[in-house]
Design a protein around this nucleic acid. Structure first.
Lengths: 106, 106
DNA sequence: AAGTTAGGTGACCAAAAGGTCACATGTCAA
DNA sequence: TTGACATGTGACCTTTTGGTCACCTAACTT
């Protein structure tokens, strides 16, 4: 399994994306802390975190018996760069920003 | 199935990512043209293109009996924006660009 | 030391995904 | 209009994935 394969497979599951959202909102969370936010047993959450970690999307830091999790944005940026070149980026960001602006107006 | 679920599931398969790579290199390809570049039967490729289309990652344009495929970068940019805020973006792009520069030197 | 808390492992099962094929529709060209 | 070409559909099978559980180790607390 290649590196990028691990990243995309990791992102394919909604629970794992939720975990990334939680870490994006506030970093440095432990397994038990994350478990409380997800409708799943601890084992399921641990398994998902392992997948995210092996993909390099989450970095961990041990502190005593706790394992703290942090979001690593680099693989996400690499996905972006794979299919959006510098020229296209200008148009796409403008388009997306416009979309956000229009949604905020309602 | 939600919209973003469709996008991430579509990106999870290596063949589908290869198809996006091919369309990124040159847009407006037909099924048979793409089929020739992939080690798989026509049926498999068609199935993958359908998944990409339903995810909004590929847009099609019919021309007679041919179906031409185009890459749509918007969903990719939305993935980026989900986990990389404007502040972080500056650091991450700098880091990634540096990585590319170092790799080019070798 | 004993109890509690945080996390890890391997087996297991049900559900989903990838790939192929027989068959079918619509379009072009002579 | 006949034949070749481009693509679509539904059934089928195999592999992968998601989730849970019984059981385990390591660390903090008193």
């Amino acid at each position: 399994m290649t590196d990028d394969d691990r990243v995309f497979k990791a992102l394919a599951d909604p629970t794992r994306r939720l975990l990334l959202d939680l870490l994006f909102a506030r970093e440095g969370r432990s397994l038990s802390e994350l478990e409380a936010e997800v409708e799943m047993t601890r084992f399921g959450v641990a398994k998902h975190l392992k997948v995210l970690e092996e993909a390099g999307l989450v970095v961990v830091h041990r502190s005593g018996r706790e394992k703290l999790h942090f979001l690593n944005p680099v693989p996400i940026r690499l996905i972006h760069d794979r299919w959006i070149d510098k020229y296209t980026e200008r148009h796409v960001t403008a388009l997306v920003d416009l979309k956000y602006a229009l949604e905020d107006e309602t």
